[in-house]
């Protein structure tokens, strides 16, 4: 008996570890794909698909240049940012529901973990004491203060339908198809996409490729970083993109995920569908990005406000009628 319990635990641990490893391992590939598609849409050839891996490799093996007056916050922050993002990504259901540690953080806690990463990043931006770093930090926190209420209302709308905030339980319920297509879920999806765009520093809120100082947010905070520190922050950004893709997939397209019994076939199907979903999102994102232009900073409130309004509408619709 003890043996079976131990094997179950070992299998559970292995499946959780697989997810934790996978989100990091394929994150650069997903980022590479979005860059490639974007370049093709702009009629450029674009870097090879695996370029992000090579970039990380290059950065990891370079000397890190640190400003004279940088404190330990500056040097530790990249690891904190990466760790918090990684833990959050490792706890969002990807290919299977009900993994070993799926109960240790719900949707609200996952969002808050990203908040921890953002806090560390914003502090790192202020550490050396430059104008750009402070500018980036200050704008990042402004965007966060607009995006977080919207995110909470999304969680609220989803939890109202599913009766839980556990991502794994939500995905398992939605995967059964009993919930069906609902207006409020559609609105929540719209809101989540807007929040995801803002949180991942994508166009129209931020431009991941820009180095025009006055328009950048994320890049301004990490302007001083180099070498392995920069690599950690870049990797964290890539993992965060995978996290948001997985979140959208798990909340709004949970089909194919391995539920209850973890047979090899179910797991393989779950993995394949998850990867397929990520690829689809990685193609859709640059298509959406190339159709719009970057916004002025003070138009963000209207953009993120629309996410808030959509999420609020999703919540209130649920009160008006159970059918929505």
């Amino acid at each position: 008996m003890a043996l079976t319990v131990d094997t179950a635990l070992a299998v559970g641990l292995a499946l959780q570890l697989l997810q934790i490893t996978l989100v990091v391992a394929i994150a650069p590939l997903i980022m590479g794909l979005t860059r490639k598609v974007r370049a093709r849409l702009l009629r450029r050839r674009g870097p090879p698909l695996l370029q992000p891996y090579l970039d990380l490799w290059k950065l990891f093996h370079k000397e890190a240049v640190v400003a004279d007056n940088a404190s330990w916050v500056y040097r530790r922050a990249p690891y904190v940012i990466f760790a918090a993002t990684w833990v959050a990504a490792g706890l969002v259901p990807t290919y299977a529901t009900g993994l070993l540690f799926s109960w240790s953080a719900d949707l609200i806690a996952v969002v808050a973990l990203l908040g921890t990463a953002r806090f560390a990043l914003a502090l790192a931006g202020m550490d050396v004491g430059t104008a750009f770093g402070g500018l980036g930090s200050s704008r990042e926190m402004m965007i966060a203060s607009l995006a977080e209420p919207a995110m909470l209302l999304i969680a609220f709308a989803v939890a109202l339908i599913a009766g839980t905030t556990q991502l794994s339980a939500i995905a398992a319920l939605f995967a059964t198809g009993d919930v069906g297509v609902r207006v409020s879920l559609g609105l929540a999806l719209l809101a989540l996409i807007i929040v995801g765009i803002a949180e991942n520093a994508r166009i129209p809120v931020d431009n991941p490729a820009t180095h025009l100082e006055l328009t950048m947010v994320h890049e301004a905070m990490i302007l001083e970083y180099s070498g392995r520190h920069l690599a950690m922050i870049e990797a964290a950004a890539q993992v965060k993109l995978v996290l948001y893709f997985s979140l959208v997939a798990c909340l709004f397209a949970p089909f194919g995920m391995a539920a209850g019994d973890k047979s090899w076939a179910a797991l393989a199907l779950g993995l394949a569908t998850w990867l397929a979903k990520l690829l689809v999102f990685a193609v859709l994102l640059p298509i959406a990005e190339t159709t719009v232009a970057k916004m002025r900073v003070f138009r963000y409130p209207a953009f993120l406000g629309s996410a808030f309004a959509a999420a609020a509408l999703a919540v209130f619709l649920r009160f008006v009628s159970r059918g929505f």
């Binding site: 000397e63 640190v66 690891y79 690599a231």
Partner: peptide, 27 residues
Amino acid sequence: LVASGTMTAAVVHRLASRSTRKSPIWD
């Protein structure tokens, strides 16, 4: 958080570069 942070830092320091250079602010 502690495990992933320290583990990552250890791996990076061991397998990749750990050399650091001090320099004036770039800005």
